[in-house]
Design a protein around this nucleic acid. Structure first.
Length: 648
RNA sequence: GCUGGCGUAGCUCAACUGGUAGAGCAGCGGAUUUGUAAUCCGCAGGUUACGGGUUCGAGUCCCAUCGCCAGCUCCA
């Protein structure tokens, strides 16, 4: 292959030669005029490229049209320019900043304008955008020199663009995209014509700091989204609606699980039902602690500031802590358990034979979170973690991590969070501990992941300064990602607390500490899980596992007997004693998302059982009390997701 | 913390440009005795988040505080 030609392998497998400066659009024309017309972008070795940018290298190539999912980001990116164009037209004098990096779902643009956009403004802007889209203006791509670009933005009085231009590293190619009158500094890619933006909608406005830094001026941001078709746009909003329906804050209120009070901002009150669920989560973890060799401890809430000075929190985490002064002594409310576990480790002299020492703690933690960041149960100021610290020898890291993986996968699988995504973060700049320690630890972690065949992503340099870490991200029932578990290696705290064990050779050695949580914050997990199940908790977690519904008051005693039998079997059951019609009791039971409704009428009272109605599955017919209790206790014990396997 | 929005009965929400705060559900009382997603009648429920102000008059307009929501930011 000469320098002047490139070879492109097309989707049909054919390899064709093109001049090196050929653009995707030109390639598309050689395939077909209709394809060229429909083209939205090119794709070279998986990367989406602009139709007008010379390809310059060989590879697997294809033309993307609006039908391809990869085209969505290009469409949204183009809609973003149309948004900025429309705002400049509707609000002359507005200085534009820049759009969004990630166009996988949304687009956004920031503006300097002495006015906060209102809903009516958005409508006006949308109307203007619609006009621009309809006009089918072609996007033009231009490569320009730095002075030329500066000249263009200066003449347009786009002051912020000049700052942005200056931020582009020397030597980088500077490209401009223009449609109609509107010019923007942009890498692309963009669609050919504005009318390829099939359907768009502006979503909301907000303030946003210039370059995301709160010391900078605040700009006005507008968010929107766009798709090739109206159907896709509707599907996007349907998904948002589905997420709203599952919102744990809404479900928590509807199901009477928890609430908040202005008297304790960002600190949940778990009602009796919520507390029942919460305690089941803890009981689940406690059971696993026995299996995995943990010892649970209970440690104080409030510590002398001295502890936080030793741990380093006093200097690095103070702004997230609550303090109190009593008897002229400064105390800090614990935001983490690790320092107290270090104190605990120091209580006894330890032999290498004691290690690994696994210390679990469900202690309540308090962290001051800024008022703007707290949110439902997912970001609170008072919470507890299924926290544990493992003190071990550096050589034991691999085995400990291996065991942690078993634990993590067992826990996540129980909730139906299958195939968690794993991230490994490695040594950052300015880390503590010598390179040999880091290398050994990182390779032990990697080996463990590879041995298990767990797919993972390495975040190079993203580890904490005190050690590498592994994060677990799960997908919920509607595909959203949640980071839950974490494993962090730490050689800093053992050093600070001068922890030691006596090794085989009789010499004192420094242990390594592993911080780990599986659920993470139990509060946050509670929220995530509630959304994952859309409020339909599996039987073992349901605060009210069964509700007995007498067909009429005549069967109240029979209903109470069924409840008594279930309670005796260790189940959580209630009787609906209201003199309502059966239909009303069923409706209320369903709305309360009680997994098992047990109906007792003349037939069942006679036979000493109940008719079983399962949520989402309906009437199963009559069962004896013994059968009901046996099935429910079995699925509860197994923590099965399916409350009634025999019904299938 | 910042920008914007919001705060009315336990819950969900009404109350046009300032003019007597209202409904459904839940609650309570009564009637009804019900067979797989709402039986009927009645009663009660409010310092309109909180504190000031403008006005003859404020749920509505203005200021401050608290909280909630979205975004920014933070996440040793």
């Amino acid at each position: 292959m000469s320098a002047e030609t490139i070879t492109l392998t097309l989707p049909d497998g054919s390899a064709r030669e093109f001049p090196a400066d050929a653009t995707p659009l030109e390639v598309a024309r050689t395939i077909g005029e209709r394809l060229a017309k429909a083209a939205v972008a090119g794709q070279l070795d998986g990367a989406v490229v602009d139709l007008r940018a010379p390809i310059r290298r060989s590879g697997a190539f294809r033309v993307l049209t609006a039908k391809d999912p990869e085209a969505g980001a290009v469409i949204r990116h183009s809609a973003e320019h149309v948004l900025a164009d429309a705002v400049e037209r509707v609000f002359p004098g507005t200085i534009i900043d820049a759009g969004r990096q990630d166009h996988s779902e949304k687009f956004q643009y920031d503006f300097r304008i002495d006015h906060a956009f209102t809903q009516e403004d958005l409508e006006k802007i949308e109307a203007e955008m619609a006009r621009i889209v309809k006009e089918g203006r072609p996007f033009e791509r231009r490569v320009v020199g730095r002075p030329q670009a500066a000249e263009i933005f200066k003449s347009r009085k786009e002051e912020i663009k000049l700052v942005r231009l200056a931020d582009i590293p020397e030597g980088d190619e500077i490209t401009l995209f223009q449609h109609g009158e509107f010019v923007d500094l942009c890498r692309g890619p963009h669609v050919q014509r504005t009318d390829q933006i099939g359907a768009f909608k502006l979503i909301e406005t907000s303030g946003a700091y210039f370059k995301g830094d709160e010391r900078n001026e605040m700009l006005q941001r507008i968010y929107g989204t766009a798709f090739a078709t109206k159907e896709e746009l509707d599907a996007y909003f349907a998904k948002i609606e589905e997420a709203r329906r599952r919102d744990h804050r809404r479900l928590g209120k509807e199901l009477d699980l928890f609430s908040f009070s202005p008297l304790a901002p960002a600190s949940p009150f778990f009602h009796p039902k919520g507390a029942a669920v919460y305690n089941e989560l803890l009981a689940f973890m406690r059971g696993l602690y026995v299996k995995y060799g943990y010892q649970e401890v209970i440690t104080p809430q409030l510590f002398d500031a001295e502890l936080w000075k030793t741990s380093g929190h006093y200097f690095h985490y103070k702004e997230n802590m609550f303090f109190a002064e009593v008897d002229e002594r400064e105390y800090g409310l614990k935001p983490m358990n690790c320092p107290s576990h270090c104190v605990l480790f120091g209580v006894h002299a330890h032999s290498y034979r004691d290690l690994p020492l696994r210390i679990a703690d469900f202690g309540r933690l308090h962290r001051y979170e800024r008022s703007g960041v707290v949110q439902g149960l997912t970001r609170v100021r008072s919470f507890c973690q299924d926290d544990a610290h493992i003190f071990c020898m550096p050589s034991q890291i691999g085995a400990e991590v291996d065991s942690l993986f078993d634990l993590m996968f067992e826990v996540y699988g129980t909730f139906g969070f299958n195939d968690p995504v794993v991230y490994l973060s490695t040594k950052p700049e300015g880390a503590m501990g010598d390179d040999a320690l880091w290398e050994s630890a990182e390779s032990q972690l990697q080996e463990c992941l590879t041995r298990r065949g767990v797919a993972f992503t390495v975040n190079t340099g993203d580890g904490a300064f005190y050690g590498p870490k592994i994060d677990f991200v799960v997908h919920d029932a509607i595909g959203r990602e949640w980071q839950l578990g974490t494993i962090q290696l730490d050689w800093n705290l053992p050093e600070r607390f001068k922890l030691a064990y006596v090794g085989e050779d009789g010499a004192e050695q420094r242990p390594v500490m592993l911080h780990r949580a599986v659920l993470g914050s139990v509060e946050r997990f509670f929220g995530v899980m509630l959304e994952h199940f859309a409020g339909d908790l599996p039987l073992w977690l349901a605060p009210e596992q069964a509700r007995v519904l007498p067909v009429s008051d005549k069967f109240l005693d029979a209903a109470r007997a069924v409840k008594a039998g279930l309670v005796a079997a260790g189940l959580r059951a209630e009787v609906d004693e209201r003199s309502e019609k059966l239909g009303a009791k069923i409706r209320d039971g369903e709305l309360a998302k009680v997994p098992v409704l047990l109906i007792v009428g003349a037939r069942e009272a006679e036979a000493g059982g109940a008719s079983v109605r399962l949520r989402h599955r309906g009437d199963l017919g009559s069962r004896t009390l013994d059968e009901i209790a046996a099935t429910m206790t079995a699925t509860t014990k197994q923590r099965a997701l399916d409350p009634w396997p025999e019904a299938k």
